[in-house]
Simulated assay, not measured.
Amino acid sequence: MARDVVSPPELAQLIEATGFSPAVRAGDFLFLTGATGGDSEGVMPPDITRQVQNALGKALLIIDAAKGNADSIVEVTSYHIGLKYHFDQVNDVMRDMLGVPLPAWTAVEVADLRRPGALIELRIVAHLPTPKPARK
Rank of each mutant, 00 (worst) to 15 (best):
P116V: 03
Y79H: 13
A65H: 13
E41P: 04
P46Q: 10
M94T: 02
Q53H: 09
E121D: 10
L122D: 06
V90L: 13
G99F: 04
G27Q: 09
Q53K: 10
L98I: 07
I120Y: 01
E109M: 09
V110N: 00
V6Q: 10
I63G: 06
Q89V: 00
F20K: 11
T106F: 02
T36W: 03
I48P: 04
V74A: 00
V90I: 15
N54T: 03
D64E: 15
A104W: 08
D112E: 13
D64F: 02
D28E: 15
A55K: 01
V43I: 14
I124Y: 08
R95K: 14
L102M: 11
V74S: 09
A107I: 01
G99A: 02
L128F: 05
P22H: 04
L102C: 08
D4V: 03
N69E: 13
A2G: 04
G82K: 04
A26G: 08
T130P: 05
G68S: 06
E41I: 00
N54Q: 08
R135D: 07
M97E: 09
L30N: 08
G38L: 02
V6S: 10
K132T: 14
A111F: 01
R135L: 13
L122S: 01
Q13H: 11
S21H: 15
A118L: 00
A35V: 09
I120Q: 07
L30A: 05
A107S: 15
S72T: 08
E41D: 15
F31D: 09
M44V: 12
A107R: 11
M1N: 03
V24Y: 03
A104I: 05
V76D: 04
D96G: 00
H86G: 09
